[in-house]
Nucleic acid binder design. Sequence first.
DNA 1: AATGAATGAGTGTTCATTCAT
DNA 2: TATGAATGAACACTCATTCAT
Lengths: 199, 199, 199, 199
Amino acid sequence: MSEEVPLRDQILEISRHLLYEEGYKSLSMRKIAKKADVSATSIYLYFESKDHLLHTLIEESVEDLSRFIESKALPKADSIERFKAITKSYVEFGLQNPEKYEIIYKVRSDSMARYPKEKFRKARRAYELLVKTIEESVDQGLMEVDQPVVAAYSIWAQLHGVVSVVLNKRLDSRIDREQFIEESIEHVVQGFLIRTTVL
Amino acid sequence: MSEEVPLRDQILEISRHLLYEEGYKSLSMRKIAKKADVSATSIYLYFESKDHLLHTLIEESVEDLSRFIESKALPKADSIERFKAITKSYVEFGLQNPEKYEIIYKVRSDSMARYPKEKFRKARRAYELLVKTIEESVDQGLMEVDQPVVAAYSIWAQLHGVVSVVLNKRLDSRIDREQFIEESIEHVVQGFLIRTTVL
Amino acid sequence: MSEEVPLRDQILEISRHLLYEEGYKSLSMRKIAKKADVSATSIYLYFESKDHLLHTLIEESVEDLSRFIESKALPKADSIERFKAITKSYVEFGLQNPEKYEIIYKVRSDSMARYPKEKFRKARRAYELLVKTIEESVDQGLMEVDQPVVAAYSIWAQLHGVVSVVLNKRLDSRIDREQFIEESIEHVVQGFLIRTTVL
Amino acid sequence: MSEEVPLRDQILEISRHLLYEEGYKSLSMRKIAKKADVSATSIYLYFESKDHLLHTLIEESVEDLSRFIESKALPKADSIERFKAITKSYVEFGLQNPEKYEIIYKVRSDSMARYPKEKFRKARRAYELLVKTIEESVDQGLMEVDQPVVAAYSIWAQLHGVVSVVLNKRLDSRIDREQFIEESIEHVVQGFLIRTTVL
DNA sequence: AATGAATGAGTGTTCATTCAT
DNA sequence: TATGAATGAACACTCATTCAT
């Protein structure tokens, strides 16, 4: 009764998994089909083409990421709190949903050329939230930032670097994972706050 | 007379280029061969397999990165200067040698499973240099860092995020590239220096 | 009210069109279904198989051709007039109903092996009329023909050649279409009439 | 020793045969390969694509047809003799080389769109010869023809009709094949000669 | 040092058709 | 009368690799 998972969702789930485990290059319609225990043809009942399937995967992942960040950040009234929530939840999402996170950053670049521009814009909801939050903090004199847009991008990039290193398991064995994450976020964040407390 | 470029090197050069231009998935022995104007079979005279060719490519790129950083950093006697030189040259290398840089980070993850562990260690020369430099700075009371190993990794990751965002041309159009790079490095670096000057 | 076109007829119409526009090879049940805005399965409610559908198409076209020729030729009491009417209407039909004409000659040969013999005979009504008309003309001393059956076939073949060349747009650009048709028919016809007027 | 037939030629031969026997639609690289007892991949060593293979086939057939007609017609000094030789050899070629003849007329129309224009021109060598021959006959007062170009095309078309009917085995069982051919050519030819002898 | 010939496995995709509803 | 779900077979084509020369 409860195992009534629609094939379409199953396909997405399996694709996501295979993509993560074996990489983009080795993802094939047939492999997906075999794992789902259906014929390769059946996939085409739900997705026009491999490209469409991949785009759906990207879209879904981006949407999830955006929603997750919003769910954590929007409730915070205080702009700095919101800022921290964004950075923290971004990393959190990446680490807890490695399959989805990697799709956003790895598949996208390969399948990008054919990815519809309109959907592309949607993808930036969370980023725009970060920009707005920085602007607000600046207005309130809590941050000193030349160009919020640049700062946001820089933060984005740095956080991505952190997540990506952890996910790729390139962590030095001498390093404690949790500590690394904690400290990295802290560093990224602190770099942008005004250090009134220093004195 | 001067155009006597060994085929082996030509193959590596072409592979690097194709890899960057068309992505890992679409790199094929045949395409390499056609570009080099030799038979596909000939590649096998110099490389056991496609995997070996890719590994050579990775190795070479890592070596170049290490050497470049060393050439910029080792001459600096002052540990902070050396620290700055490392971060700056890391980004510089990435932006000036996108083909090599991408091989390190993109191909590696796909081809990783089969990448020999021993070669893997070599790859970290520049990273170890960073660790040592941080330790030195800490000893000299110029940095306040709990675990140099963690800090180094965090820096590494953040810088990678910055380079990767720029290379993937995912820069927001409202953002000036040079400014973004400059500020990002600055932020990463400043986050680790002791702010004696603040007062 | 007036747009109540039975699905069966719609399917035939669409098939005919697709066949003409995109060729036999690319005609598929799915494409037909999509154009008719029904499911592919629905076609099977009216036609046992693709072969049956094609055979229906052939049959229909042959029937139309026969009827058209009969409508033009049968009213003519004079045998020579009837003869001319047959040749003229044959070409006319081909040029005005290219979709149907091509089905008769192009699809048939491909789908032939499986085309039921009995239906095959029906197809020759117009041809038999031509034979009879020639026989009548011979009896009346207006034509000099050894074997009406052979002559009829020869005429048939030549006319087909003419129509087919025009339909395939293989006409030399230096040639006026109408003139070509006119003259070709004239030649075919004149070749069989007794040239009493020559003297 | 003597069975040293190059694979390339074998493939062409087999393709020609399959094309004739089973039609354009059912011709597949796999079937060709199987008949040649090689892997499907091997075909690609000799032909870039299926299209290229088909084009080669067309080209070859057209060339053979042209050469055959030229070999029969060019030696004739007398223009009427040459005219007759052209018509006769055209039909002869079609009947003796049905596989090649059908390729010219059947495959061409399907594969046409992609058939290079330049090669297309070559295809008309024999037709141009017919035009020239008619012009010469007209100049010598042996033929009365308004536009040689139109006449040539008409003849071409009619002959094609004749050959095509015979090849498609659509001949009425009451008809003697040889007689049909003979009489049809005769009719086509006579239609264009000046009937000085009639009186 | 280099190649031409060959291949088995695999790719994304289309097809006619069936079956349960 | 109509359909959605499903499939096995086939398609053109690409791939990394081998082997004899």
